[in-house]
Design a binder for these strands. Sequence first.
DNA 1: CAGCAAAGTCTACACTCGTAGACGTGACTC
DNA 2: GAGTCACGTCTACGAGTGTAGACTTTGCTG
Lengths: 209, 209
Amino acid sequence: MTLDPPAERPRNAAATKAAILESAVVAFTRSGYDGAGVREIAQAAGVTAMLVNRYFGSKEQLFREVVDVVLAPPTIVPEDSATLAHRVAETLTARTTPEAEHLDPFLLMLRSASNPRANEIVRAGIERYAGRRLAALLPGPRPDERSELLLSLIAGVWLLRKVVGTTALAAMEPADLTRRLEEVFGAAIAPDPDEPADRGRAESGGAVE
Amino acid sequence: MTLDPPAERPRNAAATKAAILESAVVAFTRSGYDGAGVREIAQAAGVTAMLVNRYFGSKEQLFREVVDVVLAPPTIVPEDSATLAHRVAETLTARTTPEAEHLDPFLLMLRSASNPRANEIVRAGIERYAGRRLAALLPGPRPDERSELLLSLIAGVWLLRKVVGTTALAAMEPADLTRRLEEVFGAAIAPDPDEPADRGRAESGGAVE
DNA sequence: CAGCAAAGTCTACACTCGTAGACGTGACTC
DNA sequence: GAGTCACGTCTACGAGTGTAGACTTTGCTG
């Protein structure tokens, strides 16, 4: 758990700032941008609310840094695009079981979608990190469209299975769900469903930097 | 548009209550449960904030009625399960184009997901209306699982394409998106991907490993 | 036309939120 | 060991929220 009891930290700006940031990640992921209060974040970090604004300028700036921190490391680490659908399906299933308490970036996105400012910050982050990184793994034309489509499907499963918590989907047998999601994701990222192959073929293999 | 200018309505309890409810549908769908204020809802209906509580008891009760009103009519009206994937894909694509301003129940769900109370109300509504109705159309075993899975995928597309607004997905060619979504949805609701057909058929024994 | 219950409004309360400025206090340097 | 500057806290403000009770006005009915 990331719930430190007030750990009597000696005075250290860097450590305190890191503690606040970590606490903010937890709070924003659990309650969303509007749902998490500055005082609550500060208390979990063992400081006062004012220090949050002193180090991060404002709640919005803090959220911006949280999004960066959370989206920067690769969430999905696929080795090759062949087994991508399977691996994503497997990971997603595991992280969205009722018992799991994984703090996923998707939760942060879902729970902050109601606030327009936070939403815009998340959108920029998604495109800059997850979308681009995923698109680089997809062969065929228009990889960005298929990568964002895959992200959207993943987000949807997170939403209904873990946030909203609809019963049938939440209680679904992991093996069954994984197998079915693999089919679904495969259809989403397949190079071409049935359209002629000449459209936008030029950029195949164009690795991003 | 549902934005009435204060239309000088004569005193009529039923009409006023209906106006408040309609205004609440718009406000909650646009801003979510927390984002929409009682005063704002009342003003759009041409009344004072107090009247809202007088007629609906509380904001939460109002939201409950809104969810009922919004989820009761069938959003997706498929004739048969064969063309279901295609029709859903088509409708979803049309409603999530950047130009469209359709107030969809999915938006209400997405934007209210951050609030636990509202979330629970939405969950109950989804299961009671959309999930059950959709499941009735799906042949094969465990239709509830596949119906909720389809709903989750739809929600995900709504989220990224219309709420978050990621660029590639939002700008995607409607025909391309429809075609691809049809494949995806087809994989989600297909009676059985590759598992033997005897599983889940006889659930009286409950021998699910 | 008069009366009266219903429809609608006004004022106000208790609370939470993010944030600004003034004020202690700790740890490191000479 | 004393000075000093960064680190951290305290008090408080202004705006916003949902809601309760007392008040006023309207439309219907006799």
